[in-house]
Amino acid sequence: MALYSEKVMEHFRNPRNVGVIEDADGIGEVGNAKCGDIMKMYLKIEDDIIKDVKFETFGCGSAIASSSMATELIKGKPVSEAMKLTNKAVAEALDGLPDYKMHCSVLAEEAIRSALEDYQKRTGKQIK
């Protein structure tokens, strides 16, 4: 299908970091079923580094691919860097998304930020 780039299809077919982290340090869930997309991110953080990240997504092909790519982009990175992840970076790493699917990359950005905010709330730490 030429609807998506090869990269999107590759991440959609073989999503990275799928699943749940039972003892996560931060969890973020964004979107709603009404609009047809929900993303949930689980973070394991040690020494301000994202040691592990997993996701669960209800949504279209680009939502799943965006989740997968976003987890790849932040895994092993300092939390401060993860906090700066933009939807544009996610979309670019996927070799682009159709215009009306850009909101999927926005959701991925928001899901990660939401999980990091949860981590801040739990630990009282401020990510700089």
């Binding site: 299908m1 959609f12 077919r13 047809g36 209800f58 949504g59 279209c60 092909g61 939502a63 799943i64």
Partner: peptide, 11 residues
Amino acid sequence: EGIEGESLLLL
């Protein structure tokens, strides 16, 4: 219930 149609179609 619990899934989205487009990803179903692609797979």
